[in-house]
Write a protein that binds this DNA or RNA. Structure first.
Lengths: 177, 177
DNA sequence: ATTTACATGTAACCTGTTACATGATTTT
DNA sequence: AAAATCATGTAACAGGTTACATGTAAAT
């Protein structure tokens, strides 16, 4: 379980509403963490019940009140406990590779066009991550120091996407013949 | 959902028992698909109820009967339908990166040793995959042709692990200072 | 006029993990 | 003597997805 800790990490940096967290997961850290809004709101409720987070309502007109969540001392304790504990390596379940493994049983044009579709998506992701990197590299060295750990995770995203695209070249080679 | 299709792909190549499938997932295709035995046995039961697979019992002494599952025509139809259908790109939830993102809140020695531990695991995985590749490359060109799609997935595993380890070098650099 | 963004939630369902259960054979 | 391998399963729980629900304001 770790959506719990992903949220605690985000709230440890600064307070966020559920909606904010959703945007973070979609826009800035989606290359290493994903969650749907239903999952986030449910988890926030649980964390609140456990008193690891607290919230203040921000009244808005025409919209539901915005609940701004902040981490509590108990939350910080739990986060530190988790940070010190070993974490299992990432488990991969990749449906595209299942398809390719079974490609003998399908028309290869279908598989080939599927790969092309995925290449486009991965290329877009890479471009987006490279733009984030450019933004980081334009910061002052002091600010760069502040964001060095998030930047390291961004590097993982970039190197991961680059490797994926290099593999895709091998794949298209094979499907061309 | 796709354990269903991962199993169908495996059974489409040749019949397997639940235990066999578990070994496959652990040993040969674990770099793209993972499942626990409980999940596999449950899924096999469901697939059997849906008549996508059938089994024959192999009587053994001192052990439970081995159920050898094979794909049915209906199963092949379902597999083909799925193979032709687009698949969503892989969603990543990586707890190690969550930790690094929040590394400001933890003793860096803990994070650094955690990364070292992961490097060892990834290096072992890479070595294992390279050994599998060596085996493939020693096959006759005819046999290589037969296994070209599984080999392509293996290449994905290798390129993925290599990229991970290159990233880990950047990470250790940062944690050394 | 329609879609997207904002903002939160409930309910049902599906997928994956952990704990428990059995019992012979082989390896360390 | 203890642990790992073979071989299958049940039950409870945790995590994640899909469908449904509401309603304003801004952008296309």
């Amino acid at each position: 379980m770790s959506l719990k800790h992903a949220i605690l990490v985000m709230l440890d940096q600064k307070p966020h509403s559920g909606y904010d967290l959703l945007q973070q997961f979609k826009e800035s850290v989606g290359y290493f963490w994903n969650a749907k809004h239903q999952q986030i709101y449910r988890q926030l409720k649980i964390l609140h019940d456990e008193e690891l987070i607290a919230f203040q309502s921000e009244i808005q007109s025409g919209k539901p009140d915005k609940k701004i969540y902040a981490i509590t001392q108990q939350g910080k304790d739990e986060l530190l406990r988790w940070l010190k504990e070993p974490v299992a390596t990432n488990k991969i379940n990749d449906a595209l590779l299942v398809k390719i493994y079974g490609a003998d049983s399908a028309p290869i044009e279908d598989i080939a066009s599927e790969i092309e579709r995925h290449i486009e998506i991965h290329q877009n992701t890479l471009n987006y991550l490279l733009a984030l990197e450019k933004k980081y590299l334009s910061l002052s060295s002091n600010e760069q120091l502040n964001f060095r750990y998030p930047y390291l995770t961004l590097r993982r995203g970039i190197l991961g996407e680059e490797a994926w695209l290099r593999w895709a070249e091998e794949a298209t080679q094979l499907f061309k013949k």
